[in-house]
Design a protein around this nucleic acid. Structure first.
Length: 574
RNA sequence: GAGCCGGUAGCUCAGUCGGUAGAGCAACGGCCUUUUAAGCCGUGGGUCGCGGGUUCGAGUCCCGCCCGGCUCACCA
């Protein structure tokens, strides 16, 4: 198949036609053009339509019916009704919605009552484009040749639009060229006028077109798309071409990050960049990647967190900073972990963690309204409600509620805690430090049930070497985690700015490391020195972007929200 | 790292008890000037993930390996 296309490519070159030309004047993105002539139906707009079923197709869940009225105007109906037959007349009641740009009736049910004409409904939301001239470009994703005319769809990131070439307008030669040399998958540019076909679809009547790039490989199948998960990740470009859901998720991700930047800017934060190559990997509990700089003759680590650098900037007098960027952790890869992942970390001088709670709620409300337009998010079986104030619960209150044991037990009865952990069937209990064990027990008994957005407040000090001691309890720190759908989405605290206390905490971490905790933090002497110059009272927070996108996109795999997730290299079979 | 599941045409998938490797879409040739999962007639297309073994005979059974998915263990 590739050979046929390669032959076409050769022939084009022989004809003196460049199959890879330099530019094409585009008047707009396809989606923008469609938006101008297509109105979005209101939420939950119920319609009743009557028409003849022209085709009944099975989909993943139910059936898709192409329904036409007497004038031939068509609408798509998605239904679970069984036994529908083509050429029969039906009336459906359902919700009017655009599916991939086309007006459709979803969740439709058969009804005996009188239905409206399809054309009446479509007129309200699909406008006449009045032969407006356009120049559009995109990938040809389908083609239907009809002798002296050709239909097809071209697609860009923003949408699809039908193109129509007929002999009378485009000319015999150009029509033949399209038939002979243009394939599904090629990038083409078209110039022509917008009109609606007999069935009501917005279409470019092509006056002239250009091949903009030849595609040598066939595209994935148009109906089932690309399902092979491995190919979807390894060749993400194919996934993006073939699967609208993939495009939707990454558009959502882009939108979220862009709105996040706006929100920070609105609140006086400036965006900064701190080193990814760091001589000391500290600021989080994780194993780093190690690399080597030839000229400096030194080992460097890919950062596991930007925290200690961002706080140096607070010392330097930047009162509100944020950084959106990658962190790298050399741990295993699974459904919720990629070796490189995106976090936003932000720090505000003169705030404490109470300010951050409010700020976080405000930010989530803002982001949700800008991206999904709702505070109630469907995630798997659950409906997550982000209406503030979010639930708040103190760390040890939650533990006490679940286990009946109090803070004293967890912090001072190491042997008792071990026994409890064993009862909870936590593995490798005997090899864990006190801090690690406490963390595990909390995860096992408490996080399981934290589905709705919940702030867990006031963590034990031994789990938080960079957080400031709680003003009311020396065994706690002023820290919270925001947990949503069992994921730790945000982690924040009033920052420790006492250099002596900070040094003690690092020393404690070194002890933990010696006791076998590979992820304990390293001492950063210069960071201590920075604190000695004086860091104002400060609050800081990190939000995991990937996990947040997972929740908004309603997916349970981090690989669905990272464009190019890490996979093992493909082995060449040579 | 352990357990379970998967890998068959470009894509989506069938493949019975071990007995000639299949369908739809895509491709190729023909017909067709408002089609839309277009339609109609015809044609070609396979390292059955890789390597070994058992067998007269392996996509199918056995062993090893590669890649992916899920679950578990660790980081978020």
């Amino acid at each position: 198949m590739e050979e046929v296309r390669f032959k076409k490519l050769q022939e084009l070159k022989e004809k003196g036609i460049n199959p890879y030309p330099y530019r094409f004047e585009v008047t707009d993105f396809i989606g923008n053009i469609r938006k101008q002539y297509e109105e979005e139906p209101p939420e939950n707009y119920i319609v009743r339509v009557t028409g003849v079923a022209k085709r009944v197709s099975r989909t993943d869940k139910g059936y898709m019916v192409r329904l036409a009225d007497e004038k031939g105007i068509e609408i798509l109906v998605f239904t679970n009704e069984e036994g529908l037959k083509p050429k029969e007349k039906y009336t459906f009641e359902g919700v009017l919605k655009r599916v991939e740009g086309k007006l459709s009736v979803v969740d439709a049910k058969l009804t005996q009552e009188e239905g409206e004409e399809i054309s009446k409904i479509k007129e309200q939301f699909d406008y006449d484009p009045h032969n407006r001239p356009v120049s559009l470009a995109g990938r040809l994703v389908s083609m239907r040749t009809m002798g002296k005319a050709i239909f097809g769809h071209i697609q860009d990131l923003t949408g699809k639009i039908q193109i129509y070439l007929k002999k009378d307008i485009v000319g015999e030669e150009k029509l033949k060229f399209f038939n002979d040399y243009i394939d599904v998958g090629d990038i083409v540019g078209v110039r022509g006028k917008l009109f609606r076909t007999n069935t009501g679809e917005l279409t470019v009547e092509v006056e002239d077109y250009e091949l903009l790039a030849k595609s040598l490989h066939p595209l994935p199948e148009k109906w089932h798309g690309l399902k092979d998960i491995e190919v979807r990740y390894r060749q993400r470009y194919l996934d993006l071409i073939a699967n609208p859901e993939a495009r939707r998720i990454f558009m959502l991700r882009t939108k979220l990050i862009s709105e996040m930047r706006k929100f920070f800017e609105m609140h006086g934060f400036i965006e900064v960049e701190t080193p990814i190559l760091q001589p000391i990997a500290s600021g989080a509990n994780a194993r780093p990647f190690v690399t080597y700089h030839n000229f400096l003759e030194t080992e460097l680590y890919l950062r596991i967190a930007p925290e200690l650098y961002l706080k140096r900037l607070i010392v330097g007098g930047f009162p509100r900073v944020y950084e959106i960027g990658k962190n790298f952790r050399n741990e295993s890869v699974d459904r919720t972990h990629n070796p490189e992942f995106t976090m936003v970390e932000f720090y505000a001088a003169y705030w404490d963690y109470h300010d951050l709670i409010k700020f976080t709620e405000d930010m989530f409300v803002y982001l949700l309204e800008k991206t999904l337009g709702t505070l109630k998010v469907k995630y798997g079986e659950w409906e997550l409600d982000f209406t503030p104030p979010f639930k708040k619960v103190r760390y040890f209150d939650l533990l006490k509620e679940k286990t009946g044991k109090d803070k004293d037990f967890f912090l001072h009865d190491f042997e008792g805690l071990k026994k409890l952990a064993k009862e909870l069937e936590i593995p490798d209990v005997d090899r864990m430090t006190h801090a690690k064990l406490l963390d595990k027990v909390f995860e096992r008994v408490a996080e399981e049930e934290l589905i709705q957005p919940t702030f867990v407040l006031d963590f034990p000090k031994l789990l938080s070497p960079l957080a400031k001691t709680h003003r009311e309890d020396p065994e706690l720190v002023e820290r919270f985690e925001l947990i949503v759908a069992r994921y730790e989405v945000a982690n924040a605290y009033t920052e420790l700015n006492d250099p002596f206390d900070q040094k003690e905490r690092f020393l404690q971490q070194l002890k933990e490391k010696q006791m076998g905790d590979e992820e304990a933090m390293d001492m950063d002497e210069d960071f201590i020195r920075a604190l000695e110059y004086g860091m104002p009272p400060t609050a800081g927070e990190g939000i995991g972007i990937d996990r947040l996108v997972m929740i908004l996109a309603n997916t349970d795999s981090i690989r669905e929200v990272i464009l190019f997730p890490q996979l093992k290299p493909e082995k060449k079979s040579s």
